Simulated assay, not measured.
Amino acid sequence: MIELSTYDIAEPVTGDDYGELLRVLAPVATRFGLIVQMPFAVLHEPAREVLERLGGHLVDAMDTQAWPGSQIVGRMTVERFLFRLDAESLEVLVSSASSLYDWVNPMLPEDLHFLRSDGSVVLGTVAQEDDAWLQLTPAEYEGIAARIPRGVVLRRA
């Protein structure tokens, strides 16, 4: 069992700090996920463009009631898309938003999350609630701590 510590991201991550944080975390993750609240969300053009640009990186798409930080009660489901994280898909994420909290339907797919190869969470967000966190091993934290942008405020949970 991997020992993970949770670090809450205490302040909004925007602008250059947003892109830098994603770049710092990318080597820890192999995949990322995005949520589409179907059938209720009619996605706007920017969301459709992001999904189109990421299409070649798609690993899986599924109906679900749970994803990092969220659980739906009842019969409703959402569409969860999982993508391969590489330099090209990372740049789509960086260029498509200016904040972790921009990832909200219908303007963009929702709740960006980064995952390790075993499916465990590296970065989780619940964008509508301005909630974001990291789950890192001690070695991962040590490896990236000095590179985390100064504007990113972490609090150990």
Rank of each mutant, 00 (worst) to 15 (best):
M1L: 08
L4Y: 11
S5W: 11
T6Y: 08
Y7A: 10
Y7R: 08
A10T: 06
P12R: 09
V13R: 09
V13C: 10
V13E: 03
D16F: 03
D17H: 11
D17K: 02
Y18V: 04
Y18E: 04
Y18I: 03
Y18S: 04
G19W: 10
E20W: 00
E20I: 00
L21Q: 11
L21H: 11
L21R: 10
L22Y: 08
L22W: 11
L22P: 08
R23C: 02
V24K: 14
P27T: 00
P27E: 02
T30W: 00
G33C: 07
I35A: 10
V36C: 05
Q37G: 08
Q37M: 04
M38L: 15
F40P: 00
A41D: 14
A41G: 04
V42Q: 11
H44A: 13
H44G: 06
A47F: 12
R48L: 13
E52R: 15
R53L: 15
R53I: 05
L54C: 13
G55C: 04
G56D: 06
H57E: 05
H57S: 14
L58C: 10
L58D: 08
A61T: 13
A61Q: 15
A61W: 07
D63Y: 11
D63P: 00
T64V: 14
Q65M: 05
Q65L: 00
A66Q: 14
A66T: 13
P68A: 13
S70P: 09
I72L: 15
V73I: 13
G74K: 07
R75K: 10
R75Y: 09
R75T: 14
T77K: 15
T77S: 14
V78A: 12
E79V: 12
R80Q: 15
F81M: 11
L82N: 03
L82P: 00
L82F: 01
D86N: 13
A87W: 00
A87C: 01
S89N: 13
S89R: 08
L90D: 07
E91A: 02
V92N: 11
V92D: 12
A97P: 05
S98Y: 05
L100S: 07
D102F: 09
W103K: 03
V104D: 00
N105L: 05
M107K: 13
L108T: 09
L108G: 11
L108R: 15
E110Y: 09
E110N: 15
H113F: 13
L115W: 03
L115F: 07
D118R: 09
G119S: 06
G119M: 04
G119E: 05
V121S: 09
V122E: 04
G124A: 03
G124L: 00
T125A: 06
T125K: 09
V126W: 07
A127D: 02
Q128A: 10
E129K: 12
D130H: 12
A132Q: 02
A132C: 02
W133P: 01
L134I: 00
Q135R: 12
L136I: 04
P138L: 00
P138W: 00
Y141T: 01
E142M: 03
E142H: 04
E142T: 08
G143R: 02
G143H: 01
I144V: 15
A146N: 06
A146W: 01
R147C: 01
P149A: 03
G151I: 11
V153H: 04
L154V: 09
R155P: 02
R156Y: 01
